[in-house]
């Protein structure tokens, strides 16, 4: 039974956590694409920046003597999200809005977002260097262990408090987004603009407002994703720079512009990555007496060091097989 527990810990829990991160990031990417029609490369660094904002706020809270049973980094998240939203709006106003006004092509905005990436990276590194920081210097990271001796396993199912919170945050965010997009006037206007921007304008929809709302959601989600990721692992200046690529893969696999597709794509890529590097030999070991062949020591589909490439292989396959993504993404 320990093999099964190992599988749950290594594949199901890791995959859910990774998928949550990818989904939170991919929603932001896909919303921005739907409304503004460009691939926003700086999204990963907006995530990292959100993590650092929460980190500073957590330091501040600790120095004020605020101690609660939940992680301080999570406690300050709402405030961090508000700050991140204002920064996101500022980035749009400072860098992207002038280009849109000039009627620049989406490609130009894509390149501009690379510039924004570099600026944010530079600033983060200027202030924080390239060291790694932990939210849990002053408090313990709680680890949950579910005893599985009832089914004959000696090892418990293990996950950490940040991982649990991350999944909760993702579920809440996805539900909130769903109700926003299907029930609220502004949410429907967002869908309308993503569907047909010209007609949205003709209908009298305040498109500038919709653009602002898009940045509010994207900025808030990016901050949440970055902070939760930093709580789970550790906070580094290149925290999300490496994750932004699987996130884009998730958004494309789900179909750019499709919020639900982004969520599905996020979990698909997350699980694919953990399953690809999982050593399947472990699951076969209990049957070694009945199997006609000897089980190899390593039955991982790809070696661990190639984990990141899994996302791209899936991406390439999806692009070849169905170029607009599984959920039929927008085309521009």
């Amino acid at each position: 039974m320990n093999e099964l527990i190992f599988f749950i810990n290594k594949v199901l829990i890791s995959g859910t956590v990774l998928g949550s991160i990818y989904a939170l990031g991919a929603i932001g990417v896909t919303l921005i694409f739907g409304i503004l029609r460009f691939a926003h490369f700086a999204h990963g660094d907006m995530m990292t920046m959100g993590g650092f904002i929460a980190f500073l706020l957590a330091l501040l809270a600790t120095s004020l003597g605020i101690v609660t049973p939940i992680p301080t980094g999570f406690l300050v998240l709402p405030l961090a999200m508000v700050i991140a939203v204002f920064i996101a709006l500022g980035i749009d106003k400072g860098f992207y809005a002038p280009l849109r006004k000039r009627g620049a092509r989406p490609v130009t905005l894509l390149i501009a977002s690379i510039g924004v990436t570099l600026i944010i990276q530079g600033l983060i590194r200027l202030f924080f260097g390239s060291a790694s920081y932990s939210f849990f210097d002053n408090e313990p990271k709680e680890i949950f262990q579910i005893d599985m001796s009832a089914i004959g396993a000696t090892r418990p199912i293990t996950f950490t408090e940040p991982q649990l919170l991350m999944v909760i945050v993702t579920v809440v965010a996805v539900l909130a987004l769903h109700f926003f997009l299907t029930r609220s006037r502004l949410g429907k206007a967002m869908r309308a603009m993503a569907d047909n921007a010209d007609l949205a304008q003709v209908s009298g929809i305040n498109t500038a407002l919709v653009v602002r709302v898009t940045w509010v959601i994207a900025g808030a989600l990016a901050c949440a994703a970055g902070t939760m990721l930093a709580l789970d692992v550790s906070l580094k200046p290149d925290l999300a720079f490496n994750i932004v690529l699987p996130i884009f893969a998730a958004a494309i696999v789900g179909g750019l512009g499709q919020s639900y597709g982004a969520i599905a794509g996020g979990f698909l890529i997350g699980f694919a990555e953990t399953m690809a590097v999982f050593n399947w030999a472990i699951l076969l070991r209990p049957f070694k007496d009945v199997l006609p062949f000897e089980i190899p020591a390593d039955l991982a589909i790809v070696p661990t060091e190639y984990k990141l490439t899994v996302a791209f292989v899936i991406l390439v396959i999806v692009l070849l097989w169905r170029p607009t993504g599984i959920f039929k993404g927008a085309s521009s």
Partner: peptide, 28 residues
């Protein structure tokens, strides 16, 4: 052959993805 038929944004991600695959291969 794989990527050129794609739209610009997709092409950007696809090329960056392929370069990451090349990096992983040569590095490991």
């Amino acid at each position: 052959r794989i990527a050129l038929g794609l739209r610009t944004d997709y092409l950007a991600i696809a090329t960056i993805g392929i370069s990451e695959i090349i990096r992983a291969l040569l590095k490991n």
